[in-house]
Amino acid sequence: MAIKLTVNNQPQELDVDPEMPLLWAIRDHLRLTGTKFGCGMALCGACTVHIDGQPTRSCVTPISAVAGKSVTTIEGLSSVAGKAVQTAWVGLDVPQCGYCQSGQVMSASALLARNSKPTDADIDAAMAGNICRCATYARIRAAIHQAADSLPASQAKS
């Protein structure tokens, strides 16, 4: 039976194995390849998307669990916080190989949406699930602070 959900504000119907992780559904079936595969075990964060606004590891989320929900991938990231994060990411030249960065941006924008002025400890807590083998961590931290500074507290959520 087809599973109905919303992806980047578009209604989608997917007739796939209900156990299929959301990651492979959006990559292989919806061809949204910005979301990356890194471990398949919720260990690296490369596959992070927002489900009803919550940062979620799509590699361990069965598609059946997302029925009726709203998924945002890096391609559909349009929140004020998301844009601020991406602007800071580009401004500080955060990415190296870039492979982890979709997940980093999704985690960082979810953080800013709920906490518009995160401390270093808040950043550690929110971002420790996202591995970067290129170790761009120092710039990730700086970019999150910069994005926060660019953002009036009231705007982050919209």
Partner: peptide, 21 residues
């Protein structure tokens, strides 16, 4: 000299081999 690939790599548009369809 900002990196020429920062934008594509911050927006999920950079294509890697795993993304080839």
């Amino acid at each position: 000299l900002p990196r020429l690939d920062s934008h594509s790599k911050s927006t999920g548009t950079q294509q890697f081999a795993i993304d080839v369809m």
